[in-house]
Design a protein around this nucleic acid. Structure first.
Lengths: 191, 191
DNA sequence: CTCTTGTTATAACACTTGTTATAGGATAGC
DNA sequence: GCTATCCTATAACAAGTGTTATAACAAGAG
């Protein structure tokens, strides 16, 4: 496997993730992804013999892992304000893209159909959400919260962030994000 | 205009809203919507001369108004537990559809592209979110909260609900919704 | 009846999609 | 050199998309 080929593979996944976060699952076209990634169409199908389902699945896994990593970094670098740090990263992502970019996993979750053909996509989505939840649960546990409350807090945090990202794109302004930055600490700092 | 024709128009919009909430913006095909609504394709283009953009826009407005109405009903019927009532309606919608149905406005907000062609769609989305926010703000104001805090609360509430709906569909279970039902009251009842 | 107006049926156009097949090129091992 | 393996170019297929044009139909007004 040549070096260029391995990089092609990587670029295809990253480009797919970007388009996924901008235009959704059905907005991802293999032809366009290949073109934007400077990867020949033939090459793309060589590296992803299962076609679109495989590309999208790997894009979800990759983007999910990226987010998990920065999340962990934020939380471990500053246990007290780590979550706020993470929020600000999302804030900047949405703002600097002029409300074009959202969360690729959310986009996939909304459009993924229930047929057997896209089963891999669905399990990838559930896995990513699960990994995020796990990280947050451990964070809240380490702050002395109970197991049950940590679980609720984790799910609420993710829900709030994802919802706010969508609302910002809908409103075309950042007010929803400002709102959850104000309100989220109220339930997190409470006991 | 015959009676049947007016009903055709209505059924097309409702069907479009349903598909929008299940498969997203690009999942809405005029041919399929017409078929499911028992409305002839020619008829559909007669009633919606601007084509898909018009159908989708009206579907967003209609679905947004439906939600606003039930929201208002819940809040006025029981000022104290009205919001919980509204949450339960969403809960049932997601659960009883086996995680297939989400929020049509969210789906549109994620997929709506920025080109001029879909401008009507984007303003419809912003309008609906704005209407929901307004209802919630007035509710919180009537409970004695400050203007600023009511605004934050309203946006947080919508973000939480929309996020939880998505997470439920991703997880294929209702735990995210249970979580926000536990945590939302913590910031709402606080002062 | 005629004629206008509102509605529908049918076919076609141009385009994009995912995917496959097939042939060609590159590159390494020997 | 030769060969085998990995990679890529090109064309094609079948299906689906939004949309338009055109003709037919229905029904009520005069």
């Amino acid at each position: 496997m040549s070096k260029n080929s391995a990089e092609n593979r990587k670029r295809v996944i990253e480009t797919a993730a970007t388009i996924l976060s901008t235009r959704g699952l059905k907005g991802v076209s293999i032809r366009e992804v290949s073109k934007l990634a400077n990867a020949p169409l033939g090459s793309t199908y060589h590296h992803f013999p299962d076609g679109k389902v495989q590309i999208v699945t790997e894009a979800i896994e990759w983007a999910g892992e990226q987010a998990a990593i920065t999340m962990k970094n934020c939380l471990t670098s500053d246990a007290k304000n780590g979550l706020l740090l993470f929020l600000q990263q999302w804030y900047e992502r949405v703002r600097s893209s002029a409300f074009r970019q959202g969360c690729p996993i959310v986009a996939a979750a909304i459009e993924a159909s229930q047929n057997e053909h896209e089963e891999h996509v669905r399990t990838a989505i559930a896995d990513v959400f699960g990994r995020w939840q796990k990280i947050l649960i451990e964070h809240f546990l380490s702050q002395g919260k109970t197991v049950e409350y940590s679980k609720s807090l984790a799910l609420t945090t993710i829900s709030c962030i994802e919802g706010a990202v969508i609302l910002c794109r809908g409103y075309q302004n950042m007010e929803p994000f400002d709102a959850i930055i104000n309100t989220l600490p109220l339930i997190i700092s409470s006991d």
